[in-house]
Design a protein around this nucleic acid. Structure first.
Length: 470
RNA sequence: CGGGAAGUAGCGCAGCUUGGUUAGCGCGCCUGGUUUGGGACCAGGAGGCCGCGGGUUCGAAUCCCGCCUUCCCGACCA
C-alpha cells in the first residue's frame, strides 16, 4: 500500500488537489447558498491562530479594535464615485425587511470605508484627535461569480483597518508600517510564506484609493496570490464623508485616510504555498496540533509510553500535542495526520520500546529520527523551530527558482506559464497590460529595482512583477 | 451573460441506447470478531420522493416536453 496516494497529485490537477485537501483535511465545506463557506473546526483553529498573531501586531502599531454594522445604507456607497463603481457588481442588497419593502435599500457590507468614514467625521474634531487608528474583525459579502473555498467566497472573514491622519506623510508612513511590520512580518515569521512587496499599478488599485500596496506570494503551481493589501485613500473618502479636523492654526482641514486588510484567503494561501501530494503542511506557528503521538499498537505498554511522553511534552506546549488513540490501522492514522499537515509525528511501537526509543518524523521533509524518550523532548522543541525556518527557506527557493528577469512582453508571457516574470515597467504600459490580460496574466505589483516599495507608480526605473493569479 | 458537462444513498459512480419483478457497485457509516511498523480483513446490517413538474404507456431512473440546480472554461475581486 505504500505510496498509494489519497489525493489527486498537484502535477496532475492542481485545482483538484486543492479541493481534495480542503475536504480531506476537514478544513471547510461549501455552504448551502452558492459561494458560501462553512469553515470546519480544524480550518477555523488555524484561522484563529492567524487572527491572534495579526491582531497583536496591529495593536502594537497603536490601532484599537471596534465594530461597525453589517448593514450599510445604500446611499453611503454612492458618495465616493470610484468606490461605488468598483463594488456595485458584487453587492448583496437587502430590499425587504420586517415584511415590507424598505424605503432605502440596505447593502451588506463589501468593506466598511463608508460607514467608518461617517463615524470618523463625527468623532474627529481637532488635530488632537488624530491619528485615529481603528481596526475591526468582521465578515463581509461580495457576490462572486466563480467562488472557491477560502480563495474567493461570497462571504468571508477578515480584519479591516481604517485610519485617519492629519497629513499625507503621516498616513503614508503609518500604512507602510502596517504593510511591513504587520503583514509582511506575519507572513514571513508565522505563515513562513515569502512575498514580494510592492504597489499595484493604477489598473489594479482598490476602488477609491490613491495608492494600493500588496504582498504577493507564489503558490506551488506558480500562480500568484495576494495575501494582504494596504491602501492610501488620500482625501477621497474624507471629502465624501466630510472628515475634517481643526488644525493648530484653527483652520478646518481634510483628513487623509487609509485602509488595509487580510482575510480568510490567507488560509487558502497557506494551503497552496506549502502543501504537497500528501496533503497540508502547516507551519508550527499556526498548527493547532504541533505534535501527534501515534501508538503503533493498541497494547497496554505502548499506550502507557505514549501517555507519559504526552505528559512530558505537554508541559511545554499545552493543548498543541495529542495522542491518537483512535481506531483503525497504523497506516491509516499516519495518512490522516499527514493530510492535516501536523508538523511532527511521534511513533511509539513495541520495536521502539524494546530499544528504549521513539521515532520522530518531520512532516515537511519526511525525515525520521530514532531517539530516546528523554531526548525526544529537546529534539522536538528544536525541530519545531527548524521546521518553521526550513519551510520559509524552501518556499523562498521555490519562488526564486520560478521568478525570472525578462525584457520583453513575449518572454514575460512565456515565463508566466510556470511562475513570475520581472520586467521593466516602462516596457509594459497600458497596451502591454492589455496584451498580458489577454493571456490571463496581470501585473501583480511594481517594485523598485532593489525590491523596495516605491512611493508611486510614476517613479523611474520601476520593475513590474507579472503572473497568472488566483 | 457566452461556451461545455452533469443531476441516482453522506461522497464517488453504474444502470438509460433497446421501458418490465425487490435500482446496483466502491468508499464511508452501524454491530460483532480478527487485526494494527504506511489508507487492514471477515461476517452481518442501516441508509433512495432515481433534481422538480407534466406527458406517453398496462408499466418510466430509462422515452417526450418544460423548469430548476450544480460543476468546469471565458469578462470582475481579499
Amino acid at each position: 500500500m505504500a505510496g498509494q496516494s489519497v489525493l489527486t497529485s498537484q502535477n496532475e490537477d492542481f485545482p483538484k488537489w486543492y479541493q481534495d485537501v480542503v475536504a480531506k483535511a476537514e478544513m471547510a465545506d461549501n455552504g448551502p447558498v452558492r459561494g458560501t463557506m462553512v469553515i470546519r473546526p480544524y480550518g477555523y483553529a488555524i484561522w484563529e491562530r492567524m487572527q491572534s498573531e495579526i491582531d497583536s501586531r496591529i495593536k502594537a502599531t497603536g490601532a484599537q479594535n471596534a465594530y461597525f454594522p453589517l448593514f450599510i445604507p445604500e446611499s453611503y456607497l454612492h458618495r465616493e464615485a470610484e468606490h461605488v463603481e468598483g463594488f456595485s457588481p458584487e453587492l448583496a442588497v437587502v430590499t425587504h425587511a420586517g415584511g415590507e419593502e424598505l424605503a432605502e435599500p440596505i447593502v451588506v457590507r463589501p468593506t466598511s470605508e463608508t460607514v467608518i468614514g461617517e463615524f470618523m467625521a463625527k468623532w474627529i474634531q481637532s488635530y488632537r484627535d488624530l491619528p485615529l487608528l481603528l481596526n475591526q474583525w468582521a465578515n463581509v459579502v461580495r457576490w462572486e461569480l466563480r467562488p472557491r473555498l477560502f480563495l474567493r467566497s461570497s462571504e468571508f472573514l477578515w480584519q479591516e483597518g481604517h485610519t485617519a491622519h492629519a497629513s499625507a506623510e503621516d498616513a503614508s508612513q503609518y500604512v507602510m508600517k502596517i504593510h511591513v511590520e504587520v503583514y509582511h512580518d506575519f507572513l514571513e515569521t508565522v505563515l513562513a510564506v515569502p512575498t514580494y512587496l510592492g504597489i499595484k499599478p493604477p489598473s489594479e488599485r482598490f476602488a477609491g484609493a490613491t495608492n494600493t500596496m500588496t504582498c504577493e506570494a507564489m503558490m506551488r503551481d506558480g500562480k500568484a496570490l495576494q495575501m494582504a493589501t494596504s491602501h492610501e485613500l488620500g482625501q477621497n473618502f474624507a471629502k465624501a464623508f466630510d472628515i475634517f479636523f481643526q488644525n493648530e492654526e484653527g483652520q478646518a482641514a481634510l483628513c487623509h485616510t487609509t485602509s488595509w486588510g487580510a482575510s480568510t484567503r490567507l488560509v487558502g494561501g497557506l494551503i497552496m504555498a506549502h502543501g504537497d501530494d500528501n496533503g497540508l503542511i502547516v507551519p508550527p506557528a499556526v498548527a493547532p496540533t504541533q505534535v501527534v503521538i501515534i501508538p503503533v499498537r493498541d497494547d497496554e505498554e505502548v499506550l502507557q509510553a505514549c501517555q507519559s511522553l504526552f505528559v512530558e511534552l505537554s508541559r511545554e506546549r499545552p493543548s498543541r500535542i495529542v495522542v491518537d488513540k483512535g481506531r483503525g490501522s497504523f497506516g491509516r492514522r499516519v495518512t490522516d495526520w499527514e493530510i492535516k499537515g501536523v508538523p511532527l509525528r511521534v511513533e511509539v511501537g513495541p520495536r521502539d520500546l524494546a530499544q528504549g526509543l521513539v521515532t520522530v518524523v518531520r512532516r515537511d521533509t519526511g525525515e525520521k529520527f530514532a531517539v530516546s524518550h528523554v531526548e525526544a523532548r529537546t529534539l522536538i522543541q528544536g525541530l519545531l523551530e527548524t521546521i518553521q525556518n526550513d519551510m520559509y527557506a524552501s518556499a523562498t527557493s521555490f519562488r526564486d527558482a520560478r521568478t525570472v528577469d525578462v525584457t520583453t512582453l513575449a518572454e514575460a508571457i512565456e515565463a508566466a506559464q510556470s511562475g513570475f516574470a520581472r520586467l521593466p515597467w516602462d516596457r509594459v504600459g497600458a497596451s502591454g497590460e492589455t496584451r498580458l490580460n489577454a493571456e490571463a496574466i496581470t501585473v501583480r505589483c511594481l517594485q523598485r529595482g532593489d525590491g523596495t516599495i516605491p512611493a508611486s507608480d510614476l517613479e523611474d526605473g520601476l520593475v513590474a512583477i507579472v503572473a497568472k493569479s488566483y
